[in-house]
Write a protein that binds this DNA or RNA. Structure first.
Length: 423
RNA sequence: GGAGGGGUGGCCGAGCGGCUUAAGGCGACGGUUUGCUAAACCGUUAUACGGUCGAAAGGCUGUAUCCAGGGUUCAAAUCCCUGCCCCUCCGCCA
């Protein structure tokens, strides 16, 4: 959420940001609404002031044992008037609140303007792997090794769910343990194991609601959402709280499953591990001082890349363009792994700085030690990294001619010292 | 799931329709005293959104906020309803 005052004072900036993101939102109509809302609010406050004054007068009259009846009558009249204006106000207010929630964050000046074709690659692994045979897709490898059972997952639940089996299950578990350990030990992140169901207020604070409601799983009885990412429970840890400046920066890491309905997706994109409704992910979240947030974003990106360096996988990093970035982000880097079987780049991480956009929605602040003022923190998050596609990339990059798959060295101690997955 | 008891400022805690502009205490901060520390004494002590003055720091002013949202009333921390959370007991369960 942007500051209403900021929008009022910088309408052109906001208009430009919306245009650069290719969003549709009429700022002028919004500003008119906002003005109207404030006018009504001022009227209401004036009437309340009058009521409060009468209230005191009544008290005085009662204390002096005089008749307050005429004052009471006056108060009743004001009450009537108030009811009318408040009814008007609540209509404007409701519209105002849903509208301001739908205004996206302002992209950082360093973000390339345009659609996904303007994403800028800033780093790429020196060389892609070479094979003296035709590399297979991960689906073929997984079926050959009997480590993933897509058919039975579909029977148990539905299409685009995954059942890992044997060494496949072991690999999945090894990977998230490896990543959480790495970030906790070397990155200085505190490990969290959060709830995987969250309420509406939490989903709103991080920006999944109201725009992405149709992509989320929700429980009927309690209106709780299955988390689409650990970003939601982690960032909401400090919703409606005031932190001390000395507490910052705060770094959290969590492994969680992630649930995405993605109602609109279909076709080739959805085969295998590319786009599944439930996947595992290790997520990094930071709460930092505004002055540090872009340095922190670079460090966050480096922490995510470190996982892939250690796994010795080919990857590239792109700055996402204004149209490709999520609604709440100011700046976002994507990390993509190369999958030689598919001959495609697979997105396994987004590292974003939200500046104070989420903090304002979630009312997450800190007290400045020197000035004593409270202000919004900056929040960041990044995948470190997402699992399903990572498994696909490992299978495809480490495959051997006979269909076996070498286990990356750093995972050996998480896999009972095994070096290879074979049939 | 059932039955009770609760939720008040940074913390503890009183208040239970108009005497509250939320008592009192603790803590924190500033000051006085002091060789230093402590003690004592005096003072300050939230947030949000408007209006207004100011170059700014900030001042003045209005409104709201006693878990949240509704309601009753001229008037609600106080009464009623709904929800959330916490505690005790019972049931069920991993």
């Amino acid at each position: 959420m942007l500051d209403a005052k900021f929008i009022r004072n910088n309408p052109d900036l906001v208009r430009q940001a919306i245009r650069n993101r290719n969003y549709k939102f009429d700022i002028d109509t919004f500003l008119k609404l906002e003005q109207e809302r404030r006018t009504l609010l001022a009227q209401i406050e004036e009437l309340y002031a009058a009521q409060n004054k009468i209230d005191k007068e009544v008290k005085t009259l009662l204390a002096e044992k005089k008749d307050p009846q005429s004052k009471i009558e006056e108060s009743k009249r004001i009450k009537q008037k108030l009811a009318d204006i408040e009814k008007q106000f609540s209509e404007f207010d409701a519209k105002y609140k849903t509208d301001i929630d739908r205004i996206p964050n302002i992209p950082h000046p360093s973000v390339p303007i345009g659609d996904a074709s303007h994403n800028k690659i800033i780093k790429e692994s020196a060389k892609l792997p070479k094979f003296d045979f035709k590399p297979q897709e991960h689906i073929v490898l997984a079926e050959h090794l009997n480590i993933i059972d897509f058919k039975r997952a579909a029977k148990i639940t539905g299409s685009n769910f995954v059942l890992f089996k044997g060494e496949g299950a072991r690999l999945e578990r090894a990977l998230f343990n490896f990543m959480v350990d790495l970030h906790a030990a070397e990155g200085g992140y505190t490990e969290i194991f959060p709830p995987k169901l969250v309420n509406r207020a939490s989903m709103r604070a991080t920006g999944q609601l109201p725009n992405l409601e149709e992509d989320m799983y929700v429980t009927k009885e309690e209106d709780l959402f299955l988390i689409p990412t650990a970003e939601v429970p982690l960032t909401n840890i400090y919703r409606d709280e005031i932190l001390n400046e000395d507490d910052l920066p705060i770094y959290y890491v969590a492994y969680t499953p992630c649930f995405r309905l993605e109602a609109g997706s279909y076709g080739k994109e959805t085969r295998g591990l590319m786009r599944v409704h439930e996947f595992d992910k290790v997520e990094l979240v930071k709460f930092v001082k505004p002055s540090d947030s872009y340095d922190e974003l670079d460090k966050l990106l480096a922490d995510a890349c470190k996982v892939l360096d250690m796994l010795a996988l080919p990857y590239r990093v792109a700055i996402l363009s204004t149209q490709d970035m999520s609604f709440a982000a100011s700046k976002c880097y994507d990390i993509e792994l190369y999958a030689p079987g598919l001959d495609r780049w697979l997105e396994v991480s987004s590292c974003s700085n939200f500046e104070d956009f989420q903090a304002r929605r979630g009312n997450i602040r800190y007290k400045d030690t020197k000035t004593g003022k409270t202000q919004y923190v900056h929040t960041l998050n990044g995948s470190g990294v997402a699992l399903a596609r990572l498994v696909a990339a490992i299978l495809e990059n480490y495959q051997q001619k006979d269909g076996s798959v070498i286990i990356p060295k750093v995972l050996k101690r998480y896999m009972d010292g095994r070096k290879k997955i074979t049939k």
